[in-house]
Amino acid sequence: MDVEDLLREGMERFTEEVPVPRGLVHKAARARRRRMTIRAAMAAGTAAVTAAAVIAVTGAGTGAGTGGVTNARTTAYVIGRVENALAAENFVIQGQATGADAFSVHGHRVRDSNEPTSSWTYRNLWRTEEFTGISCGHARPNGVCTNHGGSEPYVAQGTARIGGRLLSVYVTYYNHRYSLSPRGHFHLKACSKTAQLGLGGPAVTIPDWPAFIKAILGCQHATVTGHARISGVQTIVISGLIDIPLSKGYARMVKEPRVRVRYTLDVDSATYLPVRIYSSTETYGGAAGPTVSAYVTNVRWLPPTKANIAKALVTIPPATSG
């Protein structure tokens, strides 16, 4: 069959379930009134347009498909501002992530804390450090927890300046070893499965994550869902849900045909820079039953002072062998 015929047939099939639109005229009239209210507020200088739009959207309790135009436009506006803010930022970014896994063992739900992770990023410099966590405590040279002694650095990964060259480095503190490699070019294809799966993990383990977040926000999964106050900062909440079918090989390996990734970005309503990121990956079946792996990453945007930039480099501790 010719492509043109297939296209016609496809269009027919694609839209055959389309319902008769109901109430669209009234929704449009309401949306128009709302927009006029926002414009009036802007003209009067009584409120920031984004806050007004966000409040209008959340106050109306709109959802996908019904929230319609105002929500879509608010989302587009906010995401545009976030993208610009991320593109223009010149900060040392500090991230602190904590997380937990929930799964089933012999029918019992188990919740297990993930190791806290911290990161420092400045342009092409980055350092991610994973800690053992309080429950693990001091780690033996084989990496096994002693369950006492408090949390300590476990592994570090990132860039290091060695002999004037910028290299990639991986340090394992528990056995006092490190390895060097040429600095790779980090590039995640926007909206790719890899990028979407990465989004379900702690945001700090991704080098150049502002570029990563920016790329993900361009994938149309995100929606402005409200506002929140975090550590005294008024934020706009952007949420997204992605259902990701896994490739056959990967699905076979993890015994899951698909995963669901949820994320929430709280962006400072003044600077539009993210201050907190929630991310989770859910699976539905497999031996451990439904699993949820969730992370919270708190983000600070620090001035690029010498001291702060230095924190974005991995330092190889003394008495560590390569």
């Binding site: 005229v25 449009a28 498909g65 135009v69 879509a72």
Partner: peptide, 22 residues
């Protein structure tokens, strides 16, 4: 729906057009 790729986005688009008409 064909112009946008989904029923939800199509409804949004049609609603926008109605808004303009109003």
């Amino acid at each position: 729906v064909l112009l946008t790729g989904s029923i939800e986005a199509g409804e949004d688009l049609l609603q926008s057009a109605i808004e303009r008409l109003l």
